[in-house]
């Protein structure tokens, strides 16, 4: 038998729905980590089944909870609206029709305190699992189950090999890597999923690589629980 009993007995979660509640909280919590800067307002565009049933499954409450940094099994989740008020976080929901996107997709726009905006698109794909599909207009496919590097760089020859060199030097194995650009020779975006913990040292070394605009490391520590 290759199925763990804990796939049958679990997850431990806040009800009522693993996809519409637990997955929703996970999505906005992941988006918050990706944005990585203070924000005072967030808007959620709900697509498909999310748009149709969000009130019934507490998807709205869960999304706000995740934006506040709460985990999907946090007891405080149901009180997220009140917590947001206390924290001074404004939020809003609207329905949106996206083409060729998963039924449970949300567009999250973060209004940052520095006056800029960040937009993350992600889907809740079942059983509490998620997929980040777009970051600030760049397509990606991040499961957010392992530590992730997000690098914004000039679209120049040799930059990817330079990034690989730095990672290899720090003994970091690249699990999944996606690279995307908005135009030839313009700005490009690279996301790397890895099994290793991403230290401040690695991030600093990457920032020193010529033509790299920004580097963000999101460390995801595999949990169990006990």
């Amino acid at each position: 038998m290759d199925i763990s009993i804990f796939n049958v007995l679990g997850p431990v979660m806040i009800g009522p729905s693993s996809s519409h509640t637990a997955g929703a909280a996970k999505l906005s919590k992941a988006a918050r980590a990706i944005v990585g800067k203070p924000f005072s307002r967030v808007s959620f565009g709900l697509h498909g089944s999310f748009a149709k049933t969000y009130k019934g499954h507490g998807t709205d409450v869960a999304l706000v909870a995740g934006a506040l940094g709460l985990k999907e099994n946090d007891d405080r989740l149901e009180g997220a609206f009140a917590l947001a008020k206390e924290a001074g976080l404004a939020y809003e929901f609207y329905e949106i029709d996206l083409e060729n996107m998963h039924e449970n997709t949300v567009v999250m726009t973060f209004y940052l305190e520095d006056g800029t905006q960040a937009e993350i698109v992600g889907a809740s794909i079942g059983g509490g699992e998620i997929l980040i599909r777009r970051i600030d207009g760049f397509d990606t496919e991040l499961r957010m189950n392992s530590s992730t590097l997000l690098i914004c760089q000039e679209d120049k020859v040799g930059i990817i090999s330079e990034i690989s060199r730095v990672l290899a030097k720090h003994q970091i194995n690249i699990g999944v890597m996606t690279v995307n650009r908005n135009s030839k020779g313009g700005t490009a975006y690279c996301s790397i999923e890895t099994d290793s913990y991403l230290t401040e040292e690695v991030v600093k070394a990457l920032r020193q690589v010529p033509n790299i605009i920004s580097v963000r490391a999101i460390n995801i520590i595999p949990e169990e629980e006990v």
Partner: peptide, 13 residues
């Protein structure tokens, strides 16, 4: 479960 409390799925919520 229906009131956004904590449960353990067994096998589902």
């Amino acid at each position: 479960n229906a009131s956004m409390g904590k449960i353990c799925a067994a096998p589902t919520a």
